[in-house]
Amino acid sequence: MRARSSDKVGKRTQVKMKVRVLNPAAIYTLWLRETIRFFRLRSRVLGSLGMPLFFLAFLAFLPVEASSVHGLRYIDFLAPGIVGMTLLFSSMFAGLSVLWDKEFGFLREIMVAPVSRVSIILGRIAGGMTTSLFQGVLMLLAAFPMGFRVEGLNEAASPAVAVLGGVLLAVFFMMLISVTFIGMGVALASKLKDMSGYSLVMNFLVFPIFFLSGALFPLDGFPHWVRTLAYADPLTYGVDALRKCLVGVGEFPLLLDFAALVLSSIAMVWLGAYLFEKTEV
């Protein structure tokens, strides 16, 4: 009897000593750090919101005919796209912040901690998702004074359900978009040595993704090869899903958007985790 109980104790301590692959405490810690930093650096938040805000403000008055944008007013077409853009930029930035940590040495502090690499990635994703979701919602709110109206889902029973369901679904899709691009950012940051590659990524990856996604204009009239490229762009599905949820019009069925985004986010997180594992600091 006694032997058995001591055995039990031994087992318990052993379990406690083990380093878990999924470590919620560490994920929470990393999330906490990210959010504290984010709200401490208010100028950065404002700065990062500047560009999409001006895109929205200036393009909202573009004299575009309703027929060319799926029969929508241009502001209704544009706002979900700009939200997508905000998410793209802020998520990419969150992922690439691994590079900042590399530059300022804090990554080493993270890497020597007895926390699995998977948990580190998940912590960063959790933190980045929170901050970019915050910015995305802020951008959505900023669109209302410019005349943006939420119509909600098409097939819903009542207008209230349509709007509420649409917004909640939109937030869910925002999460998927940001996970995809945080994963991409982490993958790139693991491959880049220092901040000098940052502008390269911004100009040759982020902007093409943005323009190909159809956030600013519909891609109907473009040549075939451009449209093919656009179909390979995860943000295309993201923006399309946001449009469908918020104003009820979209190019693809919502299920296709969902499948594409889930696939891309899994692929990107996997790639990010894989490359991050290999980094040596």
Binding site: A26, L32, R33, I36, R37, R108, E109, I110, V115
Partner: peptide, 27 residues
């Protein structure tokens, strides 16, 4: 425990927050 050659503190956090981060990471 390791103290690196270059500083590896998070400048935007306070002394307490830096230590707290570490302590939480070590469970």
């Amino acid at each position: 425990g390791i103290v690196f050659q270059e500083p590896t503190l998070d400048n935007k956090l306070t002394a307490f927050e830096n230590l707290d981060f570490h302590a939480r990471m070590y469970g």
